[in-house]
Write a protein that binds this DNA or RNA. Structure first.
Lengths: 346, 346
DNA sequence: CTGTTAGCGCATTCAT
DNA sequence: ATGAATGCGCTAACAG
């Protein structure tokens, strides 16, 4: 039977209200009584029941983070940033694995609301997510990150996906590659669409046309499967850009299996800049997102709209290219076998 | 202004209690009124406030998971298992990064309790964790995983660390290695001690004495630093066992830098079986823990003691060796330069 | 089977 | 500066 505010009041010879004031640092308490109450709190080892106070204040000090899969290094980095920032602002953080399941997302959202969670960060939104749009309309405090929903009037923190993809494209072009391909994530993910657009545009600007392949998922296996298809093509692309690091690692595995040297026969560029990219063999050239910073920013936006009623804001961070060992100069014969431009164009 | 149970009662022409009964699937409700109430609930879009009910029932349906670092692949796998199992049992999961900070652990524990979290899973405990021991004494529902506290009377789910380490040792011995070393984690981590004991015992059983080095942390950098020291020794060990995969990857990096071929000049064995181990170059031979299963089991034990008041149980799972490409036969000259036994003994 | 009555532990008026 | 009273939204006896 834990002790309550009432026990403290009686023991200290004051009323409930006074104890409550001390707890909430109200300025209207005489210094002497404040000290007496605090001493009593210490002595009794009183711990306020935050549930009860939440019932009054409508604030639980809890945020939630929805991710597709916490064991994906990108999202566990995100989780780190979110949890860290949340903790510094006095919030705890509920983490939910939603997968790609829209209904699961809705179910979680509903439960979290009923449990009084103060706000939700979505890293799971589909391109045209109805739920997110609706929550935005109702003014429920949410923040989008990593995956945008263009139609929603809510907070969001993103990277400049087109720019990042263009960095990758230009990098490969500068290395002399002419037969370029990209493996994208499923179309429901807005940022992957953007990366595709950015890549295509940059490649076309060089007078070439990239081969575009859409993976059936976002993990290593999906990258592996997509690249098997791609590597069987003749002529085979010499430079492949992947919408994330996991896909790129799948390509590395397929390449190794096919006896292709990376970067000798094939250059591979990823996107995200996860630890996995550094550990991969060879270490991945990748477009680095400031992942932890994105997590922190997401919390900041959310807490801001929570505490100050700030209206929805949009933060776009800039990615950068990190050169690994998975990309290198196009081999001499690669371009020689074919005309210089419009390699894949009819 | 969200609608309350009272609105539903009035609208449906019944009392609060009846609505509450319908909500909690009480059998003592006439079918017709149950339907009428449910219809009203639907129509009004009523969502029960779980905070208010938690105030009565003392159950929030929230668990917490304390990890040193969620961005460490081992712990993000753990988090996946925990969250998944928790969700299936109707619990949400608060995740907290506590680092190696004992005070942070205590602070989190305190806040979580005040917020009414039903139980806590510790993956952060130090060998002689006072906090955990005390919580155990007070009967507070907690479960230890991955890191044991021998003195605590609480639930725990572990792997057989000694056995796992012995697997690694025997693997290296079978490959003909005679000069063996191990890099362990900091001593506060009980499982690392156990792995050290298991490794040492198995190596000694072969009439040899391993070189033991303690890393100054648990991450790639710590492994890198520890192995630099180790690889500078003469004679250099030809087989290194690491207490976790991250340390092992640090060794791989140091070896590559020193121009040592793995497994030609040096065999490396890790522990954990994370995705990182598969992606590493070369793919790591490692002692695989059933990580997700451990997470699920931890939840099971916790929820069991929560719902049925089960007394503390102990589950020990068995690890297995996964052969990668980071371990191979000892090179012929390696053993030749030295006497066969007690290579490093005085 | 259903309604009435009390709280759960705290914050917040309103008096004083 | 402090205390008394009221209610947050719900569950849990206890009656009937």
């Amino acid at each position: 039977m834990p002790i309550t505010i009432y026990d403290v009041a009686r023991e200290a010879g004051v009323s409930l209200a006074t104890v409550s004031r001390v707890l909430n640092n109200s300025p209207h308490v005489k210094e002497s009584t404040r000290l007496r109450v605090q001493e009593t709190i210490e002595r009794l080892g009183y711990e306020p029941n935050l549930l009860a106070s939440a019932l009054m204040t409508k604030r639980t000090g809890m945020l939630a983070l929805l991710v597709p899969d916490i064991s994906n290094p990108f999202f566990s980095e995100v989780a780190w940033g979110v949890e860290d920032a949340a903790a510094k602002l006095g919030y705890n953080c509920v983490i939910c694995n939603v997968g790609d399941d829209t209904r699961k997302q809705a179910a979680y959202t509903s439960v979290l609301r009923r449990k009084g969670i103060d706000g939700i960060i979505f890293a799971t939104a589909a391109h045209d997510d109805r739920l997110v749009v609706n929550l935005g309309k109702r003014g429920y405090p949410i923040t989008l990150m990593a995956r945008d929903v263009p139609a929603a009037a809510v907070n969001r923190v993103l990277v400049d996906d087109r720019f990042g993809a263009a960095l990758a494209a230009r990098h490969l072009l500068e290395l002399g590659h002419r037969r370029l391909a990209m493996i994208s994530e499923p179309a429901r993910i807005h940022s992957s669409r953007e990366r595709s657009r950015g890549f295509t545009a940059a490649v076309r600007a060089a007078g070439l046309e990239p081969v575009m392949v859409q993976a059936d998922g976002s993990d290593i296996g999906a990258g592996y499967r997509a690249s098997r298809e791609l590597l069987a093509k003749a002529p085979r692309p010499t430079g492949i850009f992947c919408a994330n690091d996991l896909l790129a690692i799948g390509v590395l595995q397929a390449a190794a299996e096919a006896g292709l040297k990376v970067p000798g026969d094939l250059s591979v560029v990823g996107f995200d800049g996860t630890t996995l990219a550094q550990v991969a063999s060879p270490p991945l050239t990748t477009v680095v997102q400031p992942i932890r910073q994105m997590g922190q920013t997401a919390v900041q936006l959310l807490v801001d709209s929570l505490q100050n009623g700030t209206s929805p804001r949009r933060v776009v961070l800039e990615p950068s290219l990190k050169r690994g060992a998975s990309s290198g100069p196009a081999s001499g014969d690669a371009g020689a076998r074919l005309p210089r431009d419009r390699v894949f164009a009819p």
